[in-house]
């Protein structure tokens, strides 16, 4: 199985194993999609650009504000959450959830998926 297939399988497993997760994607720090499980109406390129931008800004802000090394960027809207975590090697994991998502479970599962992704990368 190729690395892309392994990454896609990990993302599908993350999404199917956590009902609150509506979509997820692996994105490079240059704003390019590596693998994704996103609904068709979402424009991958735009989402990737935004997520990479937010993680870069979050990293810089955490440092400037004396908050240490960035772990996550969390966006909360009235329709749900967007969680961005750095997986390593210039790759970020984006997870989109519904508004009633159990964040503890989301963090736990994304952390496990990130560890799996690191092994594949």
């Amino acid at each position: 199985m190729s690395r892309v297939e392994l990454l896609n399988r990990t993302l599908r497993s993350l999404q199917s194993g956590t009902p609150d997760i509506e979509a997820c994607a692996l994105i490079s720090d240059e704003g390019l999609v590596i693998a994704s499980v996103l609904p068709q109406h979402i424009q991958e390129a735009r989402v990737a650009g935004m997520a990479a931008t937010l993680l870069s800004l979050g990293t810089r802000a955490a440092n400037e504000l004396g908050r240490g090394k960035l772990e996550q960027v969390l966006i909360r809207g009235d329709a749900g959450y967007a969680v961005m975590s750095e997986v390593g090697q210039g790759v970020l994991l984006l997870v989109l959830t519904g508004k009633d998502a159990k964040l503890g479970l989301i963090f736990l599962d994304t952390g496990r998926a990130a560890a799996e992704i690191r092994k594949i990368l």
């Binding site: 240059e30 704003g31 390019l32 390129a45 990479a52 931008t53 870069s56 800004l57 810089r60």
Partner: peptide
């Protein structure tokens, strides 16, 4: 420098449709 964004990311955003 200010945002920490990679140059390639900025170029991608600038050239995005």
């Amino acid at each position: 420098e200010f945002t920490g964004m990679k140059r390639a990311l900025l170029e991608n955003l600038i050239h995005m449709r």
